[in-house]
Design a protein around this nucleic acid. Structure first.
Lengths: 239, 239
DNA sequence: CGATATTTTGAAATAATTCAAAGGCAGTGG
DNA sequence: CCACTGCCTTTGAATTATTTCAAAATATCG
């Protein structure tokens, strides 16, 4: 388990303003279901996730929900172009996050070109990850979306796994519910469930329980969900 | 018609490195169908669009295409987290764009915190625009997607329209084909065409020709396509 | 262990796609 | 100027993927 957020890695603490930033960070702990931000809220701090998983989502007038991303350790969130944050962020597991005052973050970004450059790179990676998502829901069938989703989780989980001898049958943790997955993929719950069953019946995956998935045939999974593999990266992920 | 790109607005030319950047910009002209970038290309410059419209898209193995965005004046493109650019960018109309060497852009970003801050804000706006897009294709029906698309175009065109007395029946220019629209919205061409016909038949819109749309009833259009209106902004739009 | 929520499966309904063809428009050459 | 060609757009009918409605199975929690 990592005990730092991503800012500790991308910020150069030799710069005084950056050092001050890292000092000002305040660890906060959230339980399942807690909200880190709510839609329309005026926010004054950036969260840097240390452990756990959150979802970033957006609601339509009539209650339709779209999940924009599932975000784990070593990502930050809270950047927005307006003072009012446009999304809802909920803890899917117990979450530890470091809260940094926004003003102090901006001061540090101004003072350290290196931090600013790394920060920009994280933003670009978020855009690229959104683009993957758009491709997935715009062009793929239900089974392909679910396959792509599993590969996406796998790529992100791999980032922090202890790299012992890699097992042939990899395990993917699914900390979210089927409803969350369906709201992420733009499908109904039932369709997501059927897609899992279909992949299972084809011996491409199977489940220990509904939140732990084994990949039995990675190549086949890639045939359905692959463009390439998704890009792995430590980094940002706002919404 | 604007004769500058967005960098001229967001960069502080009193900083020598920024001044040098603006000097180094080189105007290029593209015809309909020309490619500004191709997928997997190693790119060494950022484009800042002065006039015209381009599409940013991504292809799947079997040829499926997803358009990630349509981009007009006062936006830049070319930022990527890897040396190889992941998308294809094509001119939909005649396009004038200023090409800036990437290295010079990065030097200017390091030298001017103000430019860096504005640049970051543009990146955040791109993310927010991608989020709108994800919501649209993840949660909306065909007619709603088309309505949302029209509102999106309207918001962006409004940015540079001469603000004389606003007409009741607003006109929206559609420089792209129906196939482009369908690849943007994750629908088939036929479905897009039917959605237009449906909105027409409800007297919400009508067409002068297939690339010029009148909004007859903006409120009704918003009932279908609105979350709120889309945020208008001069700014970035990479892909 | 019982109660509640989540996940899976089944059958019917529906939105969107596919296949097919007609209509419209733009450009080219006679 | 008109006719021909090719492309883009619209409309129609049949097919299909996904959703919706309904219920059973499974897991979770006090």
């Amino acid at each position: 388990m990592v005990d730092k957020g991503v800012f500790a890695y991308i910020a150069d603490s030799r710069v005084p303003e950056v050092h001050a930033l890292l000092q000002k960070g305040e660890l906060r702990v959230f339980d399942i279901g807690d909200m880190l931000y709510t839609e329309g809220q005026k926010i004054d701090h950036i969260f840097d996730i240390v452990s756990g998983t959150i979802s970033v989502s957006r609601y339509g007038r009539d209650g339709r929900r779209q999940i924009l991303g599932f975000i784990g350790p070593q990502r930050f969130l809270g950047a927005a172009s307006t003072p009012l944050y446009p999304n809802t962020v909920v803890a899917l597991t117990k979450v530890e996050a470091i809260a940094y005052p926004k003003s102090v973050v901006y001061r540090a970004l101004s003072a350290s070109p290196e931090f600013a450059r790394n920060f920009q790179e994280q933003l670009v990676k978020i855009i690229e990850s959104r683009d993957d998502h758009i491709f997935t829901i715009g062009q793929r069938t239900a089974a392909e979306r679910v396959a792509a989703f599993l590969l996406h989780l796998r790529a992100n989980q791999a980032r922090f796994a202890a790299d012992g001898p890699r097992e042939k049958n990899e395990v993917i943790e699914l900390p979210m519910t089927r409803v969350d997955i369906s709201d992420y993929l733009g499908l109904s719950v039932e369709t997501v469930s059927r897609a899992f069953s279909w992949l299972k019946q084809k011996s491409i995956i199977d489940f220990n329980d509904s939140h732990q998935c084994n990949i039995l045939d990675l190549n086949k999974l890639r045939e359905y969900g692959g463009r390439d593999d998704f890009t792995e990266h430590r980094g940002a992920a706002l919404g």
